[in-house]
Amino acid sequence: MGDCPSMEDRILLLQPEVSRTPWWKKSKYTCPLLFIIGVCCLATAIGVCLYKNAYEDPIALSILSLNCWGTPGSMGSYDKELRMKEIGKMIEKQEHDVYLLEELWMRPDHATVKSYVDKTDYEMTEVGDLAIHGWCDGRVDPLYCSGLAIVSKFPILEKEFRVFSVHGDFWWNDGEYYARKGVGRVRIEPRPNITVDVFVTHTAASDYNYWYRQIQTQEVVDYVKNSTADFAILGGDFNIDPRMRNETTYQTLTSELNGAMQEFFVYLSEILNPRRATYGNPDNNYSHEFGPQLYDYIFHRSKGWNSVIINIFDVPILKAFILSEEESANVESAESKEAMFKEMGERYNATAANFTASTAAEGEHKLEKRSAEKELNISLSDHEAITSSVLLFKYRWN
């Protein structure tokens, strides 16, 4: 008789045979799946390399748009001369690359702002550059003026103005009929061989002018779409709130162009936050009682495969401390000025409370004739400015 298997041998015989088949051969789908994954990884790597080489390094462009409320005091504006100086000082700080100005109706106000621009290396359009040549008065009243101006960090290569084909009604006596609003355009080259057309506009105000505003807006959009530059930037006061459903103005703009605010905030509830209102903002001295409205926008459009990314969008609350002559004479140093500004800031909350709808109706809040208040922290306009920082990516093989 042969030797009997030991206990250990018996245990080994009872154990199931371990498969020696490689894991990648166990399923007929494994190899194809691995192949597909490998191809996808390779394609992704190639795509990333091609994308990085297809686009030039991005250009950052910072834009500010502001309705300056340059209507003459006799027509309803307040503290115009003071505010124009502060607007000029703001631009002198050179915090943005391009400034789009609306309602800079009067030549003396244009000269005031330009006097501060001339202290920098920036360029500013002249009164006649963005208006019907030879028609704009701007000395006595805004007759036949557009009120538009552009300030640029980069040399202005081209200037053009297109007047709207329609204006307000003669019988409504709201000034729209006598103004000659339109679209101003300048071309800049922030980097060699990369061109940007910058457009500024101001459409008809008041709800009842919706018919004129719709036509004007379509003309603006058509003008921007026909730009031959690598990029087009449009900003201004469009006098349309997204909640105004009785006209097509907002839909025309957002369906044809890309909105900086809309891309940055995405949700309409964020866009319509009262603190982002560009007219009737709760923090505005002059218009807060009229309720929050969103009238001012920045749009963009790219040529071919060029691309734009909105890096920042903001509605800054721009204010200026205004001192009486007596207090200005008492400020002898930067330290004393800073201390006075701090005290003024503490007193401003109580002062601002005086600006109510009732006092506005009575005209008692006109700042040039204030008596009780020796200083005020005033808004630069009845509108708020809007700012956006955009990244411009030019496709190499357009």
Rank of each mutant, 00 (worst) to 15 (best):
H133I: 11
K28I: 11
F154A: 05
G175D: 08
I188G: 00
F161E: 02
E102N: 12
S74D: 09
L391F: 05
C68N: 13
K181R: 15
L61T: 01
M244G: 05
K52E: 15
G73H: 03
R20V: 15
S307C: 07
I233M: 00
D97E: 03
E219Y: 00
I312T: 14
V331G: 09
S328G: 05
R185S: 08
Y295L: 06
I91K: 07
C41F: 08
G304L: 13
L234I: 02
K342C: 14
A54R: 12
L104Q: 11
N285C: 15
G182Q: 04
E102H: 11
M344P: 14
P190I: 03
Y267I: 08
L318Y: 06
C145Y: 02
V196M: 00
L14K: 14
T254W: 02
R245W: 01
G182C: 06
I132N: 02
A372E: 15
Y210V: 07
E95L: 06
A111S: 15
S379C: 11
D109Y: 14
L61Y: 00
E335I: 04
R275G: 06
E338G: 04
L50N: 09
E247W: 00
M75F: 07
E375P: 10
P282V: 01
F313P: 01
A229W: 00
A320N: 02
W172R: 11
T203N: 13
I46V: 10
A385Y: 00
P32R: 11
E160T: 02
P16G: 02
E364V: 11
E335H: 04
P58N: 06
I132P: 01
G304Y: 12
V151R: 01
M124S: 03
Y122P: 04
D129P: 12
I298T: 07
P32V: 12
Y78L: 11
E375Y: 14
C136S: 03
E362F: 12
K225D: 11
P5K: 09
L294V: 13
S19T: 10
L130D: 11
L257I: 07
G128N: 13
V163A: 03
F170L: 07
M90S: 14
Y116D: 05
G304Q: 09
S255F: 06
S146G: 10
R276P: 05
F355C: 08
K153N: 01
F231A: 02
T248V: 06
A260Q: 00
W23S: 14
S19M: 04
G168Y: 10
S146Y: 06
I59Y: 05
